[in-house]
Each structure stands twice: as C-alpha cells, then as structure tokens.
C-alpha cells in the first residue's frame, strides 16, 4: 500500500504575519444614473497584526468602501482582500465593526444590545456571555447602565455601547468607520484615549477611518492618506510617536510636524 503524505502534517503553512492585505484592489459600483463609478483603484498595502491603521482622506475617496471590503459586505471588482491569509468572501466572525452612527437597537436595553450579535448569529446566550457582557460594560465605563435604553444615553455613551458590542465577540480585527464623528470635540478626544486604553489591553488589529487629523495622529501606528475619484493611496505615513499616548502627546513637536504634513497633503489633494 502506498503511503500518502498526511495532508495535515506535511503542509506547513507559515502563519501569516499580516492581518489584512490588499492586493491591487479596485472597486466599481453602479451610480444611481446607471453609470459605473470607480470607488477604488489599485489599492495595495498590508496591515500587520496588532497594528493600528488610520485611513484619512476627503469625502468620496473610498474610505468606507475600503472598510466594507474587509468586512465582507462588498466584493472587490479587481484584486483581492486577504484577512489572515484567506481571501474575504463573506463576513467573518473574528471581525468586529463599529459604525459611524452607534447602530443600537432602540427597543433593546444596553445589555441586550451588546449581546445581540450572539443572538443574531443564531447562538444561545449563556450565563457566561452575560458575565462577559458585564465585564465589557465595566471596561467601557457603563457598568451602571446595563438596563438602560439607548435613548436614555448621551451620544458618547451610545458609541461606547457600540464599541462594547464589537469587543464582546473578542474580534481579532476591529473596523471603525468614523465612530466619533458625531460627537462634540471634547467627548471625541476623551473617546480616543479611551479607545487607546482598550486597544492596549486587547492588542487587536484596528482599521479606523476618520476625517480628523488630530484623531489620526493620536491613534495610529500608520496613517493611510487617500485621494478621491477614484480612491487611491496617496501616501502612507509612519507615526513615530511613543506609546502610551496621552493629552501630553498633543503638545509634542513631532505631533505638530505630523499634523502640518498631513494638513498639507490633504490641502493638496483637495486642490
């Protein structure tokens, strides 16, 4: 009898070091007038595991499309998006998403909202899940609001619930689509530091979209600057600021240099 190589033992794929890889990705969609529109063209870059990558760019540069490709909500017209070495063809369990608006279900209380993904995937909610929910609520500072309804919370608190919901599933990758854009400036900074604290505790990979230059520099390891029509990568900036970052970071000369550079780039793109 011929001995065949054991498929499990013989195939030694190296564990992919990258979390997300865009390989010459392009995306087209049909506009309401039926004309094909190019949202993205020739996107080629890699996000390493545990990196915090922020995408900035003017409206219409395809930032959200980029995020939705990773989430498996859209399929690329050209190229391929890989997550942990596998092409994305549908939503994955190990990716959590935080939306621009908190996307909470108004008829459910806070606890039921953050447990909703479990139920919506057709799984039973266990006592352990409830404990985990309580722990996650403590993590985002909402332990006392478990039985409140979304309309009883401020905008910042609602967005915390949205983040807690994404964190509960312990995702390896967190996708965040301008999550703080609806908040006032003060709450916004507060939430940024809060997010950094959570991220350093969990050490997942984050892909974060924003319009805000301050937010981008404060959060990111790398900033991807995009230009519109079609959305392309204009430049990738490595943020060399030390961690942990704090309000002190905002006063460092390097922060201001980066802000100037980023602002200059965005002005150029707009012209």
């Amino acid at each position: 009898m011929l001995s065949r190589p054991d498929p499990i033992m013989s195939v030694t794929l190296p564990a992919p070091t990258h979390a997300i890889r865009f390989s010459t990705v392009g995306h087209q969609y049909r506009a309401s007038d039926g004309q094909p529109m190019r949202a993205l063209a020739n996107i080629d870059f890699t996000i390493e595991r545990r990196q915090f990558v922020v995408v900035v760019g003017p409206s219409g540069c395809g930032k959200s499309t980029l995020l939705r490709l990773v989430a498996g909500l859209l399929k690329p017209s050209e190229g391929q998006v890989d997550v942990f070495g596998l092409a994305v063809d549908s939503p994955r369990d190990d990716i959590g998403m935080v939306f621009q608006r908190p996307a909470l279900l108004p008829w459910l209380d806070v606890e039921a909202n953050i447990l909703f993904p479990i139920r919506h995937r057709g799984q039973r909610i266990t006592a352990a899940d409830r404990e985990e929910a309580q722990a996650t609520l403590e993590l985002v500072g909402l332990a006392d609001f478990r039985k409140r309804f979304p309309d009883e919370l401020s905008g910042g608190m609602q967005q915390r619930v949205g983040i807690a919901r994404a964190l509960l599933m312990k995702p390896d990758i967190l996708l965040m689509d301008e999550p703080f854009s609806a908040l006032d400036a003060l709450t916004r900074d507060e939430m940024s530091f809060e997010l950094l604290r959570l991220w350093s505790a969990r050490q997942g990979t984050v892909l974060f979209i924003t319009h805000s230059i301050t937010e981008a520099i404060l959060l990111a390891d790398r900033i991807v600057v995009m230009s519109p029509r079609p959305g392309r990568i204009r430049e990738i900036i490595d943020v060399g600021l030390p961690r942990p970052r704090s309000p002190e970071t905002l006063r460092q000369p390097l922060f201001h240099d980066l802000a100037d550079r980023l602002r200059g780039l965005l002005m150029e793109i707009r012209l």
């Binding site: 369990d93 279900l105 008829w107």
Partner: peptide
C-alpha cells in the same frame, strides 16, 4: 429601517430571515 442596522445584520453574516425578524420587523412596529 435605519441602514446602519441593516449593515450591522449583514456584518454579522445573519441570514435574511433573521434580518427581517430581529431588526426590520421590530424597527417597523
């Protein structure tokens, strides 16, 4: 139904009937 709620459902990979039963129906009440 708010589009972000529909997107939430899709991002969780939920089947269409769950989207209707657990999100669109209650939202339409």
């Amino acid at each position: 139904t708010p589009p972000e709620l529909v997107e939430l459902s899709r991002s969780l990979g939920a089947p269409r009937w769950r989207q209707y039963w657990e999100i669109r129906m209650p939202a339409a009440v």
